[in-house]
């Protein structure tokens, strides 16, 4: 087992009937890096993420996440990762503190640990006065920050984020990425998908999926060199427009 990688996959494949959603992808995500996972709609990103999070059993191939095997230890994976998406994050009709308690308990923290981690989180976000506020009443920017902090409240080795910044204002989007940088700086691996190509530049390495396969994987700098482009937008465009399925 390689302790330097948070994710290792080898020929990871998922078929639905005769449709191959994810087609033998092999890659590693290094501990502590920000790993961008890009692809057009229908390229297979969501299916791949579901397998990596222990939510969908692969048809073929191997994968370990945070050291756990996706076939044998799916439950362990769920406890040892963080997950956040734009669509699924906090419960609007619970208060800030109730959301913290709920998710921390789901992630397996005991009462004492919840209190400790919850207090730390509130202080860091400056949300101490808002513990009894309904999440629905928080501005969107605060909600996003709270959701991210909760997703890593159990100090997971890796956090998965599926389009975390969709629809937020440009200031909040940037504040959010600073939180990602901070998490990465303390050693948490960040696996993130986005439709904003400027955000691809913030990643240490980027993988681009086309029609179920990983067509390119490198640092933004090297990818731009390889595709003779001056932006990740253009790199993405060159690769994704070749897609046959949509």
């Amino acid at each position: 087992m390689n302790g330097q990688n948070s994710i290792m996959t080898e020929g990871l494949t998922k078929r639905f009937g005769d449709f191959t959603a994810v087609d033998a992808i092999s890659f590693q995500v290094i501990k502590g890096e920000i790993f961008g996972f890009l692809g057009a709609n229908g390229a297979g990103k969501t299916t791949a993420i579901r397998m990596l999070c222990g939510l969908s059993i692969p048809t073929e191939g191997h994968a370990t996440v945070a050291g756990f095997d996706v076939y044998k230890s799916a439950e362990q994976i769920k406890r040892n990762i963080g997950y956040m998406s734009q669509k699924f994050s906090l419960y609007d009709d619970l208060t800030v503190w109730e959301n913290i308690q709920f998710y921390a308990a789901i992630y397996g923290l005991d009462k004492k640990a919840i209190k400790l981690a919850g207090d730390k989180l509130l202080d860091r976000l400056g949300l101490r006065n808002e513990i009894n506020t309904m999440v629905s009443e928080l501005p969107l920017g605060w909600k996003q920050k709270l959701a991210f902090s909760i997703a890593i409240i159990h100090q997971p080795e890796i956090v998965f984020m599926d389009e975390p910044t969709g629809g937020v204002d440009p200031l909040t989007r940037r504040q959010f990425w600073l939180m990602i940088y901070e998490a990465s700086a303390v050693g948490i691996t960040v696996f993130v998908t986005t439709h904003y190509m400027d955000e691809a530049e913030y990643c240490d390495r980027v993988a681009i999926m086309v029609d179920g396969k990983i067509e390119a994987l490198d640092s933004p700098k090297n990818l731009k060199q390889q595709f003779h482009s001056d932006s990740m937008d253009d790199v993405f465009y060159q690769l994704a427009r070749k897609a046959v399925r949509s």
């Binding site: 692809g39 709609n41 629809g167 993405f236 465009y237 897609a243």
Partner: peptide, 8 residues
């Protein structure tokens, strides 16, 4: 175009 990829 919300949630739609850059090419589309």
């Amino acid at each position: 175009t919300t949630g739609v990829d850059a090419v589309s």
